[in-house]
């Protein structure tokens, strides 16, 4: 095979901006840095710089892989919208994965509690088993009290900030192809406050 497989991975559902460029499963360039509620400013800016540096073009991509949350509502939308527009613009296959799963892919082997901080000591978290080869889910992503999850769930180590590992992700069934790019949307896990209030008042 002559044509190399170029893959772009994005996640903006956590306080960290994560962008990675992989060519034939080898990491070409990456960013994993704590943001300041400014993924809207930094995501496209950094993608543009990294693509320039690597002399990549969006139309060369074999796949776009995006973390779809659950996590920060505003944050996750930035990455999902960018992935969606890239995929749609050049008809590129797009794949989605849970953000906690993406975090777990970068953790040490074992049973991982991966979570994204939310406000008021709440978090979005799930439990995964990670080996050198792959990642499987043991407990569904949940929105709950962080202390309760940390204290009562069973795991070897918790992670909430770690650079993902695409090679683990690629072998995992948690990575899902998106059949129709127009359907790509974040997973929020929670209805909006307005909807919850409305349901309560019924």
């Amino acid at each position: 095979m002559n044509k190399s497989l170029k893959r772009l991975v994005i996640d903006t559902a956590t306080p960290y901006l994560y962008i990675a460029l992989y060519e034939d499963n080898v990491l070409v360039d990456s960013i994993y840095q704590k943001g300041n509620n400014d993924h809207s400013v930094t995501l496209m800016d950094n993608i543009a710089k990294m693509f320039d540096k690597a002399s990549w073009k969006i139309q060369d991509l074999a796949a776009v892989i995006v973390g779809i949350g659950p996590g920060s509502y505003t944050g996750v939308r930035i990455g999902v919208v960018v992935a969606k527009m890239f995929a749609w613009s050049h008809n590129i296959p797009v794949f989605k994965i849970s953000t906690p799963a993406l975090l777990a892919s970068g953790a040490d082997n074992g049973v991982i509690f991966a979570y994204v901080d939310a406000r008021r000591n709440q978090a979005f978290g799930g439990v995964f088993e990670k080996t050198d080869e792959t990642l499987v889910r043991l407990k569904a992503d949940t929105y709950a009290d962080l202390t309760t999850m940390l204290d009562s769930w069973t795991y070897d180590h918790p992670v909430n900030a770690v650079m993902p590992d695409l090679n683990v992700v690629l072998n995992s069934e948690l990575l899902e192809a998106v059949d129709n790019v127009h359907d790509l949307s974040p997973v929020y896990l929670r209805k909006t406050e307005a909807e919850r209030n409305q349901e309560q008042n019924k």
């Binding site: 496209m44 993608i47 505003t74 939308r77 930035i78 919208v81 960018v82 969606k84 527009m85 613009s89």
Partner: peptide, 16 residues
Amino acid sequence: GSLLVGINAAKAFAFA
């Protein structure tokens, strides 16, 4: 939140 969706979609389209 609404503005950021349109802006990032527009930036991604423009860059692509």
